[in-house]
């Protein structure tokens, strides 16, 4: 951590505290602790994201995850989404997923990150949707009835799909290229 990073962090702590102090005075139903966490994460995340954009920082995934987590924390803190357990899990899952997707799709091309992001977003929406439409009970009842069976069927199908066996192609330079 360089000098300017440390200074920015201290500054952002003070800024966050100031904003939280004002908000807690003018806002009802506002948790100062989580408000501070959210605002601080947004400051830190945006700093390192901007640093990456200006080519002064190597990593983009972690700053984006920090930024999106901060946004999620603030969304719950301000009760834009009511912070029930289900929505918290879904919200943070979607936040991390969106950060990974953005990082893997826009800033650097990484299939692994895009896939992880999509899985996390899918998981988040899967558990959030029944709660949003108030059909959780029905959903989990059907999941209980059909879920395990469907999963096993899916796994069976995946195993049945013919795939190329591991083969090794050698090119001119003697390098090997694995094809699955």
């Amino acid at each position: 951590m360089s000098d300017i990073d440390a200074r920015y962090m201290l500054g952002s702590i003070l800024l966050s505290l100031g904003i939280v102090y004002i908000l807690s005075n003018v806002t009802a139903n506002f948790s100062p602790f989580w408000g501070f966490i959210g605002i601080f994460l947004i400051f830190e995340g945006s700093y390192y994201t901007v640093k990456y954009v200006f080519r002064q920082h190597k990593d983009i995934t972690n700053p984006l995850v920090t930024l999106f987590l901060g946004i999620a924390v603030l969304i719950f803190t301000f009760h834009i989404v009511i912070p029930t357990f289900t929505m918290l899990v879904a919200g943070f899952s979607i936040a991390v997923g969106a950060a990974l997707l953005l990082s893997g799709f826009v800033f650097k091309i990484s299939r692994k990150e895009v896939l992880s992001g999509l899985i996390l977003i899918g998981f988040g929406f899967l558990i959030a949707t029944p709660a949003v439409f108030n059909i959780s009970e029905k959903f989990y009842r059907y999941l209980h009835i059909y879920g395990v069976g469907a999963l096993l069927i899916l796994l069976g199908l995946v195993l049945m799909i013919p795939r190329n066996k591991k083969s090794v192609k050698k090119d001119e330079g003697g390098k090997s290229d694995e094809v699955h």
């Binding site: 300017i4 947004i42 700093y47 901007v50 834009i80």
Partner: peptide, 25 residues
């Protein structure tokens, strides 16, 4: 200059995000 630019930009970005969340609230 570039460090100042980074710091300034990131503060603006952060404040815009927080402002948008507050506005929607």
């Amino acid at each position: 200059a570039s460090t100042a630019k980074v710091v300034f930009t990131s503060i603006v970005v952060a404040l815009v995000i927080i402002g948008l969340i507050l506005l929607s609230t």
